[in-house]
Simulated assay, not measured.
Amino acid sequence: MIAFAAAVFFLIVTPGPGVLSTAGVGAAFGGRAGVRYVIGLCIGTNIVALAVISGVAAVVLADPRIRTVLFVLSTGYLLYLAFRIATAGSRIAFIEAQHKPGIRDGLALQAVNPKAYAVNTVMFSGFAIGLGPVAEPVVKLLIMNAIWLPLHFLWLGLGVWLRSLDLAERTQRMINIAMAGSMLVVVGLALASLI
């Protein structure tokens, strides 16, 4: 179980669309909007997990046309996000939006978030903890949520904290480039999985 919890921690804490957008919502709109957004992400993540556990995701993704459409949408979104971050200049720019994101926005992101499907597939198809076919997924869901929620609230807190800082332009630009690079690594890993 410790190996499972450690894997969950490292897979979730690394930058991906969910945590980067969470920090962005905190930076742009503050904590209250961020909490609503994290609730949507959490519901979405658990829906993805249930789709993986039940096999629905495997059935849907078995159709190459659907898999290709979802891959193009998610990769395009990640490339767009990386571009927006990298070209934001001297502002901290995790993600920009014209309205306060809420629960629906978090749900929508997780529906096309390739990292959510990848993490859940790895976690539920690997790391057998020997509790049986019903108890094991339930325990894994509880462990994942116990790690997932605090990590996303930490990223939200980071965004709220960055909102309050007056960083030098060069520092802000370096943060943007590092975030964009992280997003490109996610895209690269997704593309590599096709080979």
Rank of each mutant, 00 (worst) to 15 (best):
L184Y: 07
A57K: 00
T75F: 13
N176Y: 00
I103W: 11
S125E: 08
F83R: 09
A57R: 00
V119G: 01
P15L: 08
A82L: 03
R65V: 14
L61K: 05
H99S: 12
A7S: 14
A82M: 01
V72N: 06
I2K: 06
V139D: 08
Y80M: 09
I43A: 08
C42G: 13
A180Y: 02
F71Y: 14
T22D: 04
T87L: 02
S74P: 05
V25L: 01
F71I: 15
P64I: 09
K100P: 04
R163V: 03
Y80L: 12
A128T: 13
K140Y: 01
E136G: 00
A6Y: 08
G132M: 02
P137W: 00
F153N: 01
A190E: 11
V160F: 04
C42Y: 08
V59T: 10
R32K: 14
P133C: 06
P137M: 03
L50F: 11
T75S: 14
W161L: 14
N120F: 02
H99G: 03
L109K: 07
R173K: 15
V72D: 07
V59W: 06
L41M: 12
A28S: 13
A116Y: 05
T171K: 12
I2L: 15
G44T: 02
F9D: 12
V56I: 14
G55Q: 01
A93M: 06
F10I: 12
V8S: 14
P150H: 01
A57T: 01
K115R: 03
R84C: 05
A27G: 11
L158N: 02
G132S: 03
G157F: 10
A6K: 13
M183S: 05
L78V: 12
A97T: 14
A51F: 10
G159E: 05
A88V: 04
L158G: 09
V119C: 04
G76N: 07
V186P: 00
E96K: 12
T171E: 08
R84I: 01
I103H: 11
T45K: 04
L167M: 07
G76V: 06
M183H: 02
V138H: 04
R36T: 09
I12N: 10
I143C: 04
F94R: 00
W161C: 09
A28C: 08
C42H: 10
L109C: 03
S74M: 05
A86N: 02
R36H: 14
I147P: 07
L189I: 09
V185K: 00
V59I: 07
Y80K: 03
F10C: 09
H99E: 11
I92A: 03
Q110R: 05
E136I: 05
G181L: 10
I95P: 00
L61S: 05
K115S: 03
S182L: 07
H152I: 08
L158K: 03
G102K: 11
L70P: 15
V38P: 09
F10E: 08
G24F: 02
G132R: 02
K140E: 04
S182C: 15
F71L: 15
S125Q: 10
G55F: 03
V19A: 15
L50N: 00
W161K: 09
A118I: 15
